[in-house]
Computed example of a mutant assay.
Amino acid sequence: MNRIEFKNFAIEVILEVLKIANAQIDEYSNIGDISATEIIQKDVIDKYEKIYLGIIGLDFSELEDEKFYFIETTIEEILKNNNLSSNFIKSQQEKRENLKGNSGAEVVKNLFDYELSKLLNAQQILIDKINIILDQETILENELKDTIQEEAQFDIIYKLQPVREEYRVLEAQLLKLDSTIKTLRKKINFKWNYEIYGTISKDELLKVYKNSFKMGE
């Protein structure tokens, strides 16, 4: 195979490893084995994610022979270490090509985009609420500065407490939401999180999810 063909082959190899690791994480998460999920994330997902991003960003036609040979050797080792055959990877490539536009990858990508849209909307609602609370706090603080009588000051301080408490609650919610948005954006930008489903059809993916929901009932 030429260099462009090999690049596509290498990408499929890495996607297969990531797909297996991702399924293992789901499996261990379902039984609450946090330690196992952390190990797989660190030793497999993080490692192969970097390799995947490195490969898709390379122009293989411009690679020096020495570097190309290194990548070729690395891919061969990955195949061997993960008990994957070249014929199997080629069959996955063929499936991916035949399912373009009708694969699970498109479904998952659309779900990610939809979820991101919902999260961004929720984020804006929270920001609006926080701004209202901050305005209330500013008004009360200004009143406190302008108030001389001690009794009136205590009254304002009493009003400030629930306002500040609400701000702390909303701020915590926003930080959590920001983290979720960041994680989802990373999945969309890094691509592999949905591309791993490019070798199964939309219908197959739907069946898997239906069966998963039934098992969880």
Rank of each mutant, 00 (worst) to 15 (best):
Y197H: 06
N83L: 15
I75Q: 03
K42H: 14
K210V: 05
R164F: 01
Y209A: 13
V44F: 01
D146R: 10
D65T: 10
I133E: 11
K159Y: 05
L63P: 00
I181V: 03
S91M: 02
K80Q: 13
L177N: 06
I20W: 11
S35W: 00
S117T: 11
V163H: 03
Y167F: 11
A36H: 13
Q93F: 02
S86N: 11
N87Y: 13
K90C: 04
D146V: 02
S179K: 15
M1G: 12
I4V: 10
D155Q: 07
S91I: 05
T199H: 05
V169A: 11
I127V: 13
S29D: 06
N142Q: 11
V44W: 00
I4C: 02
E76V: 06
S85C: 02
F190E: 13
E16T: 13
L63E: 08
I45P: 00
Q24K: 12
I31A: 00
L177I: 01
S201T: 10
L206M: 15
A152M: 03
Y28F: 12
I130A: 08
N121M: 14
E166V: 07
I40N: 02
Y52I: 02
K210D: 11
F154L: 14
I71E: 07
E195Q: 12
I200Y: 05
I133W: 01
L144S: 00
D46W: 00
T73E: 12
I39T: 14
I56S: 05
N81T: 07
I127N: 09
N30C: 08
V107G: 02
L15E: 03
L120D: 09
I75D: 06
R164P: 00
I157V: 10
K182C: 03
T199L: 00
I56D: 02
L205G: 15
F60D: 00
E217Y: 14
K182D: 15
L205Q: 03
